[in-house]
């Protein structure tokens, strides 16, 4: 199988990105900036896809459009047949996000932060408590349920943010540089926890990262974005043996630097 091939249309698709384009108009100069230029991508249910790209390549814009916070200029994103922007409320309780910074509400304890999505959905308080405590326990925070964010370390805060995402047991899980600001040991630990929980919940996950090690460790597929989110490569990691991960990393690095697909990515060795 060609390593650059994406999921074909005949396979079941959880996320379809068709000819997506996003153009921003700069407020100061009035000039148009193309953030995403004709991106097409298909992601199967329960697939974990890591998106890598250099700073300013359109990853975060793509992330915001996936959440439904930004409207596409052209083309479409469909998640389970619905568009996140136009059918915004249809994704209530079905999509969860983990951001670069923990984005915890500072006036809420770990427990109250973790149960926030359930509270917004109007879930019964008893169930809120059970599920929030369950996920806090799974993430090793049962003794910190009553702690405020300022009383926790960066890693612990990010665990609370992960618990907040998983309480929904979401169909779609989105993570934007979720572990990038943590130290390597904490990041590696949280990455594997995140992946295990995503698999357990059967979520389709998209993880945006600039760290290739992270992408290789987490992704079933690695999608490489060039400038304006041009799809440079779509790699099925399973086709690579673990001993060749070093080569894979070098090939992705070369792809990012040259902004064109590296020949080594065409077929797995």
């Amino acid at each position: 199988m060609n390593a650059t091939m994406s999921t074909t249309k005949s396979e079941p698709t959880a996320i379809e990105v068709e000819n997506l384009r996003k153009v921003f108009r700069q407020a100061t100069t009035g000039q148009s900036v193309v953030a995403i230029d004709r991106l097409s991508l298909h992601i199967a249910p329960r697939e974990v896809v890591a998106i890598v790209g250099q700073t300013g390549c359109g990853k975060s814009t793509f992330f915001d459009m996936m959440i439904g916070l930004e409207q596409p200029s052209e083309g479409a994103i469909r998640i389970n047949g619905k568009t996140p922007y136009a059918d915004f409320d249809a994704f209530r309780g079905k999509m969860a996000t983990v951001f670069q910074q923990d984005r915890l509400l500072p006036w809420r304890t770990s427990y109250d932060n973790a149960r926030l999505p359930l509270e917004l959905m109007g879930v019964d308080e008893k169930i809120q408590r059970e599920r929030a405590m369950h996920w806090l326990k799974r993430l090793g925070l049962e003794n910190f349920a009553n702690a405020y964010p300022h009383e926790l370390s960066g890693g612990m805060r990010q665990r609370v943010a992960i618990a907040r995402a998983f309480v929904l047991q979401p169909d779609i899980l989105l993570a934007d540089e979720a572990f990038g600001h943590l130290d390597e040991v904490t990041a590696a630990e949280l990455r594997s926890t995140f992946l295990a929980l995503a698999r357990e919940c059967g979520s389709t996950a998209i993880l945006i990262t600039h760290q290739l090690e992270e992408a290789i460790a987490v992704g079933d597929r690695i999608v490489v974005f060039g400038k304006s989110a041009k799809l440079l490569a779509d790699i099925h990691v399973a086709q690579w043996k673990p001993e060749d991960y070093g080569l894979l990393r070098e090939a992705i690095q070369a792809t990012l630097q040259s902004n064109s697909p590296d020949a080594r990515l065409i077929r797995a060795p």
């Binding site: 915001d64 959440i67 916070l69 915004f88 409320d89 209530r92 969860a96 926030l116 999505p117 917004l120």
Partner: peptide, 8 residues
């Protein structure tokens, strides 16, 4: 952005 992502 975080709050809106949960569709309140």
């Amino acid at each position: 952005g975080m709050m809106r992502s949960f569709r309140p």
